Simulated assay, not measured.
Amino acid sequence: MANRFILNETSYHGSGAISAIADEAKGRGFKKALVCSDPDLIKFGVTKKVTDVLDNAGLAYEIFSEIKPNPSIENVQAGVAAFKAAGADYLIAIGGGSSMDTAKAVGIIINNPEFADVRSLEGVADTKNKCVPILAVPTTAGTAAEVTINYVITDVQKNRKMVCVDPHDIPVVAFVDPDMMSSMPKGLTAATGMDALTHAIEGYITAGAWELSDMFHLKAIEIIGRSLRNAVANIPEGRTDMALGQYIAGMGFSNVGLGIVHSMAHPLGALYDTPHGIANAIILPTVMEYNAPATGEKYREIARAMGVKGVDDMSQEEYRKAAIDAVKQLAKDVGIPEDLKDIVKAEDIPFLSQSAYDDACRPGNPRETSVEEIAELYRSLI
Rank of each mutant, 00 (worst) to 15 (best):
E62L: 02
F253R: 05
I67Y: 06
N291H: 07
G310D: 04
K309G: 09
T102P: 06
T10V: 15
A57W: 05
Y61F: 02
L197S: 04
S65E: 03
V50G: 04
K48H: 08
M242D: 03
I302A: 05
G142D: 00
V152T: 12
M181E: 05
F216T: 06
K48V: 08
F115S: 01
G364K: 10
N112R: 00
A174Y: 07
K68N: 12
V137R: 03
H199F: 10
I153G: 07
V327R: 01
A331P: 13
D55N: 15
A136K: 05
V50K: 02
P285C: 03
D342Y: 12
A233K: 15
P350M: 07
T369I: 04
A207S: 15
M306P: 13
E211S: 09
A136L: 02
P293V: 12
G58N: 12
V176E: 02
F115I: 07
K298A: 03
N111W: 02
R4Q: 14
L197T: 15
E372K: 15
I248C: 08
A231N: 14
S182T: 06
V311R: 05
I42G: 11
V371I: 14
I224D: 00
A279H: 10
H168W: 01
N150P: 00
E202S: 04
M1K: 14
G142V: 06
V172I: 14
I221R: 11
T189Y: 08
F351Q: 15
S15H: 13
K298P: 03
T240R: 15
I282E: 08
C361A: 15
H276N: 12
D342V: 03
C36A: 05
F115A: 06
L258N: 06
D89Y: 01
L7T: 15
I110C: 02
S11N: 14
E297F: 08
A116N: 07
E202T: 08
A279N: 03
A85Y: 00
